[in-house]
Design a binder for these strands. Structure first.
Length: 683
DNA sequence: CTAGGGTTAG
């Protein structure tokens, strides 16, 4: 490289920075040391500081600074800006004061960095000092300086100071409006954000891509669905159809409003996508419980060569949790290890959650213990896993450990886990005590979810009337899950009157749901109130509510086998039928009597018996017994709730064949072993 | 060679 001039070395370093190539940058640095005088020209030192601070090697950058006698404002600012960009806010502030001690005056590039660092650390006193400095030097009126000072006051919560600054600014850049709107969204005041946007438009402002993104967040947070849709037209007219960020914002907005179809349309129509586009679409499907679609988009992304980063991996793992897809979950786990993202706290928490929901508590524990750091979500996931699997005592012990020795303050999610663990353990007294001390001890206001837990707690313990009295005294209006818990208890303990009250509340709140009608009708039938039961069925038919088709599925060697009731379409059908017949004989010998009230059709008794014998979960079980090697636990997933007859049949079968049977239905998890189920009181 | 406001999650 004989012809390299200092100027061209500068360009080489510049390109190393833009390509983020440390190798190239180090080569240039070595070349400088070998061929040029020490110290090199000041501008080359600046280039080197820029290189190391952008590539997040602050130590090397500091070293270059120390070896540069002619440190200028640019040298210092380059270092500080790099530190801020890489999130090292405290060192940025330390170097800001080092710079002052070095008698170098900050310019209007330096001060915004200092404001940003102070704001990110919520150091309002430091922020005020920087502000005072910029007033004295006359720099506040600069649009960048003023805007960053304004943003600092917003972030540190000094709203009055922020407003004063806003009004005093001679020229308001769009960044100032964006900072305002964005802050309103961040502090949970989306309506303020919307009002500010309208004020901005009245003042003649034209939104840019950042305004659109933040405004969309405000729309979804405040459920302003129509406003967001109107904005879609406006954004296209303003020429933002090509903006990847804005399109990503619309995908997210439509997803949060439950319009997954629209979200997909926006995604499909994008000419260019980045990995955020893919992640957003996957998470849209997960948020709306369309986990299969989420996995489908993920596989498509893999095919298109999108790198599996921590973000994507954590979302896909939660999709696997929703599907109870242990095999797929394991394969995403190994992908996470290969991509070196399994150390990420989001990924780790998602793994704990996934293994817990898939019924593999040992894997959940392993993932939990292997995590380098844990946060509240990690603890919640582990506790949820234990509680879900019926290990109530372990869940409660973990709660003690978390709040006691680890001093992690619980969230409302934690308390839902704890209360449901109490329910499973039948610990009424303990559960009530925790519930009543929530506000005082943990500063958590009980939400409808917590009330539902208590109704469930009392209901499952057989105190159905007390549960109803409890609902009547609720200070907030009871939700679907509250009445659902009561109806469930009425079903278990045969309380047709209360059950009818609960069910009718549910019909109002959730008119399209078929499950509640079926539950009430079964309850009435079981209590001998045949006419009322028939009436509920008739009502259901009249209003046009259909019971969704029930599916059960199992995964064998990575292939998913799906079954419906009375399914005869599988390749191994004749073997399946033979297994079902054999199982029925063995069960009957052990004392099993088919419970025909779970047959939903108007048939003769004999036919009903045959029908319940061919529910999708039984077929899936027969197939699993054929297809899986002996001793391996059988995992069945069902999109509806497992039927009561199948539930008792599975208990018998688990004893007869000596196998563990794990069923994940759309309500809960069942582990059948040695003639028992982990949910004991459920049916 | 240096700057403000910013899209995705458990």
């Amino acid at each position: 490289m004989p012809h390299l001039t200092p100027n061209s070395i500068g360009s080489v370093i510049e390109s190393a920075v833009s390509k983020r190539s440390l190798l190239l940058g180090r080569a240039a640095h070595a070349f400088i040391i070998r061929t040029l005088d020490t110290p090199p020209p000041a501008f080359l030192s600046n280039h080197l500081v820029n290189l190391y601070s952008k590539l997040d090697l602050p130590g090397s950058a500091e070293l270059v600074i120390r070896l540069t006698p002619s440190r200028s404002v640019v040298t210092w600012t380059t270092l500080i800006a790099g530190l801020v960009q890489n999130g090292h806010f405290a060192s940025a502030l330390i170097h800001f004061s080092n710079m002052l001690r070095d008698h170098v005056q900050p310019n209007d590039f330096t001060i915004p960095c200092a404001f940003k660092a102070a704001a990110s650390l919520r150091l309002h006193a430091t922020g005020k000092q920087v502000h005072a400095f910029s007033v004295k030097s006359g720099q506040v009126t600069d649009v960048f300086v003023g805007c960053s000072a304004f943003a600092m006051y917003l972030k540190t919560g000094l709203i009055e100071e922020a407003k004063k600054l806003f009004d005093e600014m001679p020229e308001k850049s769009i960044a100032m409006w964006n900072a305002y709107i964005s802050n309103a969204v961040d502090v949970g005041r989306p309506r303020d954000a919307v009002h500010k946007f309208i004020e901005f438009r009245r003042a003649g402002g034209n939104p840019d891509s950042i305004t659109f993104c933040k405004f969309l967040n405000a729309c979804s947070d405040a459920s302003y669905v129509e406003l967001g849709q109107q904005l879609h037209g406006f954004s296209i007219r303003s020429g933002f159809e090509e903006s990847v960020q804005v399109s990503n914002g619309f995908i997210d907005f439509y997803g949060k409003c439950g319009k997954t179809g629209q979200a997909e349309v926006v995604f499909d129509e994008m000419r260019e996508r980045n990995d955020v586009s893919w992640c957003t679409l996957v998470s849209v499907f997960v948020q709306n419980h369309e986990d299969e679609k989420a996995c489908g988009v993920f596989l498509r992304a893999r095919k298109e060569g999108v790198e599996p980063k921590d973000f994507m991996v954590s979302i896909v793992i939660s999709a696997c949790a929703g599907l109870s897809g242990l095999e797929l979950g394991r394969s995403v786990h190994s992908l996470a290890v290969k991509a070196c993202v399994d150390d990420n706290i989001y990924v780790g928490s998602a793994l704990v959650d996934m293994y817990g929901k898939c019924g593999s508590i040992e894997d959940a524990e392993r993932a939990f213990h292997e995590m380098p750091e844990r946060n509240l979500v990690t603890w919640n996931a582990m506790m949820g896993g234990y509680s879900h699997q019926g290990h109530s005592d372990t869940a409660l012990a973990l709660f003690e450990e978390m709040t006691g020795s680890y001093r992690v303050p619980p969230s409302h999610v934690t308390l839902v886990c704890v209360l449901s663990a109490c329910t499973r353990a039948g610990a009424v007294k303990q559960g009530m005590e925790i519930f009543e001390s929530m506000r005082e001890r943990y500063g958590i206001e009980a939400s409808a979810e917590h009330y539902a837990c208590i109704v469930d707690l009392l209901g499952r313990a057989g105190m159905v009337e007390r549960a109803y009295e409890f609902i009547k005294k609720m200070p907030i209006s009871p939700t679907i899950s509250v009445w659902g818990a009561l109806l469930n208890a009425c079903k278990v303990y045969g309380k047709p009157e209360l059950g009818t009250i609960a069910a009718h509340k549910l019909f109002e709140l959730d008119p399209k749901d078929s499950g509640n009608h079926v539950l009430l009708s079964n309850l009435l039938a079981a209590s001998g109130r045949w006419e009322e039961a028939t009436l509920v069925r008739k009502e259901m038919k009249d209003v046009g509510i259909k019971k969704g088709t029930g599916y059960s599925w199992v995964t064998v060697k990575g292939k998913v086998h799906t079954f419906q009731a009375k399914d005869t379409g599988h390749d191994r059908n004749s073997e399946i039928q033979a297994t079902l017949a054999k199982l029925r004989r063995q069960m009957e010998a052990a004392g099993y009597i088919p419970d025909t009230k779970y047959s939903l059709h108007d048939l003769e008794e004999e036919e009903k018996m045959t029908e319940v014998g061919h529910h999708s979960e039984k077929i899936a079980l027969a197939f699993s017994l054929l297809a899986l090697p002996p001793g391996v636990p059988i995992r069945i997933t069902k999109n509806l709730r497992i039927c009561g007859d199948c539930h008792s049949a599975f208990k018998f079968i688990s004893g007869i064949v000596g196998r563990e049977i794990l069923v994940r239905d759309n309500n809960r998890f069942h582990r059948f072993r040695d003639g028992h189920c982990s949910c004991r009181d459920y049916w």
